[in-house]
């Protein structure tokens, strides 16, 4: 991957994130008075996160074995662990660990 493409990608995201964080300082009117913005900000996160999940799930092939089962099972595992133990770090790492084992089962079996 070309280094300048990586650099400009990071720079673009950095600048946009900083501009968003800085916006309220440069506005004289309080953003919290804008009912539409407050409405959108409240309902945005759930939609964005669900669409991002779908974005990462759409790469799997659900028509051939294992029919996307590892990724779906590990998503459920992640939700279950998070609700049960209330620890995001535990849920993320445990589900990632199980997923890696499921995906690399044959390779691991060969070497261990």
């Amino acid at each position: 991957m070309p280094n300048d493409y990586i650099f400009y990608t990071l720079l673009t995201i950095s600048v946009i994130t900083i501009l968003l964080r800085a916006t309220p300082i440069f506005l004289t009117r309080n953003l919290k008075d804008n009912a539409l913005l407050v409405f959108i900000a409240k309902k945005m996160p759930i939609g964005v996160m669900c669409l991002l999940i779908i974005y990462t799930l759409k790469g799997a092939n659900y028509l051939v074995k294992p029919f996307g089962l590892p990724i779906l099972i590990c998503c459920a595992l992640s939700i279950g662990l998070y609700l049960r133990y209330k620890s995001a770090i535990l849920a993320i790492f445990a589900s990632l660990f199980v997923y890696l084992i499921m995906i690399n089962y044959e390779f691991l079996l060969y070497y261990l």
Binding site: P45, I46, M49, C50, L52, I53, T56, L57, I71, C74, C75, S78, I79, Y82, A88, A91, I92, S95, L96, Y99
Partner: peptide, 8 residues
């Protein structure tokens, strides 16, 4: 994926 699941 799992990070977005937690955030969702």
């Amino acid at each position: 994926t799992t990070m977005f699941v937690i955030l969702a």
